[in-house]
Design a protein around this nucleic acid. Structure first.
Lengths: 159, 159
DNA sequence: GTCGCTGCAAAACGTTTGCATTTAG
DNA sequence: CTAAATGCAAACGTTTTGCAGCGAC
């Protein structure tokens, strides 16, 4: 599923896309940038800047906040990362695989994030947009609720 | 439609719900609180704190930011307001009519917000949640795109 | 007279930016 | 050598909070 880190083959392709983008824009491949992007590509799920930075710092403790922010901005611009806001106050980032698209189910108890795809919903969205004459560019669809383990725990405690 | 201010009857009911909530919780009905809530109930669409505060200050210039924030927190907690985040960096609030539910189409050019309802999508959401065993509590569904006037303007300029 | 509320200003939060220094090309 | 990238700390915009004084009940 989408929660698992990108495979070796995927990472090679991500690296390649990034290099192409950087070359095209006269950007430089620095030690820190390589480190941050590699850690990001291998991360699973939906990382925050904090999480990313502390993972990066395990390899090189001198890397600063700003570099991580700037590198993720670059990844967004190059289309390799998606920025998400799940209402916990900070941005989270996930690897953007060229083709695939999904939305999210979020557990309000433990913060677990599950990805889902539902083509029927996508089609209906297009219909809604057409109804109002909008040309759709993107969307955000998040379902908030309680995941099975948390729900069991809650029911256990109550009564 | 949902964009228009609540009618006189609605406002009476909102006021009543708020009073009940305040009484239940031993809260006090102050001049500022009444002013902020009245302005909010009469507002149409999706107000930001800034917009709300400046509307409030037209009636009483001494009211401070903190009061508006605190009053909106109260309105959220009492279930009378919904907080929304459309990615422009600040929270927006809308009156939460007991029964009705809708989602949003947002124009990325001019910021226009259109509300929509699509029961078929709601049903599919439930199905997705069931698929993963989640007990759904709420959701966020936003479609971003270009509204008809902006789209026309864009096409006019190009080519 | 309580105790909750207000207004102010200060702090907090995640994020961005200016600048001197380092480093890739 | 030049221009881009780094790391730090300071600035940012939004939201929250501490506190002395005020006002509802």
């Amino acid at each position: 599923m989408g929660q698992t880190p990108a495979s070796a083959r995927d990472i090679a392709s991500l690296r390649k896309r990034l290099e192409a983008y950087m070359e095209r824009n006269g950007l430089r491949s620095t030690t820190q940038r390589r480190l941050v992007t590699e850690v990001f590509f291998r991360s699973d799920g939906h990382v925050s800047i904090e999480e990313l930075l502390s993972a990066v710092r395990r390899h090189d403790p001198r890397v600063g906040y700003a570099t991580v922010y700037r590198t993720l901005k670059l990844l967004k611009e190059s289309g390799l990362a998606h920025e998400r806001h799940f209402g916990d106050g900070m941005s989270r980032y996930e690897v953007h695989a060229e083709d695939e698209h999904h939305d999210h189910l979020i557990c309000t108890e433990c913060g677990r994030i599950v990805e889902f795809e539902e083509p029927a919903i996508e089609r209906l969205q297009e219909r809604v947009a057409r109804r109002y004459g909008f040309r759709l560019t993107r969307h955000k669809h998040e379902l908030y609720g309680v995941c099975p383990p948390c729900d069991r725990a809650a029911r256990g405690k109550a009564t």
